[in-house]
Design a protein around this nucleic acid. Structure first.
Ligand code: MN
Ligand code: MN
Ligand code: ZN
Ligand code: ZN
Lengths: 144, 144
DNA sequence: TATAAAAATGATTTTCGGTTTCATATTTAA
DNA sequence: TTAAATATGAAACCGAAAATCATTTTTATA
């Protein structure tokens, strides 16, 4: 099983991109969290260890990680692009608490399968699925 | 079965809002299409018949229709808020062609039910679901 | 190792929706 | 008819994404 860095190097070579110290450091920090991070979030984490890295580079690196298949885009509908490690966890879906913002996750191959079936009926070739469920998490339900 | 205008009037009365000529005209145009329209889209349609109505009013009216339950928000992930008639069609899900932007629709109570089940397992109270399936529509598949 | 072309960086600017503001017009209850 | 409240339309504002640009770094090759 290839590491994320290997994935990145392969992608870079394939597309005639050069390596960079900053990019590797940003990857290091990205891999150190299990959260769903925005460019802004990640910048803040990166700055703690590497204060000289700028926003643009973090922003561009995240996009690159995404294209390279290392980062998965998670949109929870607030207009902010967030990313999660795509290799550590396989594709799953999100339960988003509208009160506290907490994100729970679930996987259910049956759900995916049935969506696939509906798409097939319409002769639609699926490349990507997104299921977001909004509501109240257990904690927030308790305190209300 | 109540009409959309009746819904609107009830909502307005309940919230101490006044009626307005522009709002009714915007509703008229909104009801005349089966598309998923953004404020910009709807403005363009409105302007053809009522050139003096401005963007702000269309924008605010759509938000109001949404709050009144007449318009359903459809976000396909490009950062543009679109709306569809919520009364004519019940809640359904979208197949979004990444090539031509066409939107196909499907309903499947089983899918919803299973999502509900997954949420229940996590003690999560669902208020809203969004299922978006991205890929290639039949037309675009044919011509490739 | 030295060189030069190409890519990467970081600060800054631009873009692009959504949202708010504000002076004026319209609606509506009394 | 009046006055209070809401609605309107133009314009300003906002925040995140994306692009720009002068400078630095990488890397292939001589
Ligand atoms: Mn996740
Ligand atoms: Mn629809
Ligand atoms: Zn919560
Ligand atoms: Zn298509």
């Amino acid at each position: 099983m290839k590491t994320e860095l290997e994935y990145l190097n392969i992608y870079q070579k394939k597309h005639g991109l050069k390596r960079s110290r900053q990019r590797n450091r940003i990857l290091e920090i990205f891999l150190s969290t299990d959260r769903h991070v925005s460019a802004e979030d990640l910048l803040e984490m990166v700055k703690k260890k590497y204060p000289d890295i700028g926003y643009s580079t973090v922003y561009r690196s995240l996009n690159l990680f995404h294209k390279a298949g290392i980062a998965r885009l998670v949109e929870i509908g607030d207009g902010v692009a967030r990313y999660e490690n795509a290799l550590k966890q396989k594709q799953h879906h999100h339960l988003i608490c509208e009160n506290c913002g907490r994100i729970l996750e679930f996987t259910d191959p049956k759900v995916d399968e049935m969506i696939e079936k509906n798409a097939r009926k319409k002769k639609f070739k699926v490349t990507r699925r997104r299921i977001d469920v909004f509501g109240l998490c257990d904690r927030c339900r308790a305190q209300k």
